[in-house]
């Protein structure tokens, strides 16, 4: 049996600074966006900024979400800086 996973995507400054477009991570029961952030920040180096002072926005399945939002296998979770279009 394949281990259940979720996809994490990064955009803009975060994508560049982490040098990562997307990751596949194991999906655990009861996991939240905040759990993902803590897990990724613990990689250290530039990853620490995910729990740093700069605001990090999150979308789950392409809808804006919050640290407390639950995530599950198959979800697409995206982290990005505040948007600056227009």
């Amino acid at each position: 049996m394949t281990e259940p996973t979720l996809t994490v995507r990064f955009f803009a400054r975060l994508r560049e600074e982490l040098d990562t477009d997307s990751l596949s991570l194991p999906a655990n029961d009861g996991q939240t966006v905040n759990d993902l952030l803590t897990q990724l920040a613990s990689r250290g180096g530039r990853w620490a900024q995910l729990k740093g002072d700069q605001p990090v926005m999150v979308a789950v399945n392409q809808a804006m979400a919050k640290p407390a939002t639950a995530v599950k296998a198959g979800d697409e979770v995206a982290f990005f800086p505040p948007v600056t279009g227009g």
Binding site: A12, P82, V83, G85, G86
Partner: peptide, 13 residues
Amino acid sequence: MDALKTSAPFWKK
């Protein structure tokens, strides 16, 4: 236009 600038996921360099 105002809401697009703060809610649509675009990033400008």
